[in-house]
């Protein structure tokens, strides 16, 4: 995984709450067996609509998505995270994320930055008034920043310490866990005999 310290890019205001995983990428796009190429399915149902925010040239190169509460509810499909990344998003800002989505983001290297609802509102207003405006997401300092002068928005965001550390270091979870192989083996030796198995030696 690549290290993530800070990112500055075009902010995309997605004025919707409850953007579920079927909205982010419908099931028909999940048939690929590779890890990339999911950008075609991103927000597929809305992409045909000219008014949809990503169809407006100012936002098309966006890399910081700003969405309403309960972003990523629904399915466990990590494809939702991959689709956002494959399109070019590095960060999603929302006032509340579904647990599995947040977990998947952390594993795949997409920053899920949780902010106060009024920060989302302020960012939406700012991005709509200034199409193509950039947002800076600083993982080191845990802040989101946009705008300048009197209109500047700056606030902190929530992300759990462990995920932040892993993202900053660009660490692969499996590698970390395999470092504890002795603990795992010790645990296994104490498991009760009646626990089920799917195949016997």
């Amino acid at each position: 995984m690549e290290k993530f310290t800070s990112h500055t890019g075009v902010g995309v205001p997605l004025r919707r709450s409850n953007v579920d995983t079927d909205q982010i990428i419908p099931a028909v796009y999940l048939k690929r067996v590779t890890r990339t190429g999911f950008e075609d399915g991103l927000f597929a149902a809305w992409r045909g609509d000219d008014a949809f925010v990503l169809n407006q040239p100012a936002y098309a190169q966006g890399s910081v998505l700003v969405a309403g509460p309960d972003f990523g509810t629904g399915s466990s499909r990590e494809h939702a995270v991959w689709a956002l990344q494959d399109y070019g998003f590095k960060v999603v800002v929302s006032s509340r994320f579904a647990d599995i989505f947040r977990g998947n983001s952390g594993k795949a290297g997409l920053v899920a930055a949780q902010v106060d609802e009024k920060v989302v509102q302020a960012l939406w207003d700012h991005l709509e008034a200034n199409p193509g405006a950039e947002i800076t997401v600083d993982l080191e300092a845990r802040t989101v920043r946009a705008g300048e002068g009197a209109e500047a928005i700056e606030d902190s965001f929530d992300i759990d310490d462990y995920t932040r550390w892993r993202l900053l270091e660009g660490l692969d979870d499996i590698g970390i866990t395999l470092g504890h192989a002795d603990d795992i083996a010790a645990y296994e030796s104490g498991r009760p005999a009646w626990k089920p198995v799917t195949q016997r030696a």
């Binding site: 466990s76 995270v81 599995i100 977990g103 594993k107 795949a108 462990y162 499996i174 866990t177 795992i184």
Partner: peptide, 20 residues
Amino acid sequence: FGIGTSEVEHVLATQTLPQA
């Protein structure tokens, strides 16, 4: 509970999951 594909890989490799 449900997990994402990175976690599927993690469980396949280690039979464990880091969980808060």
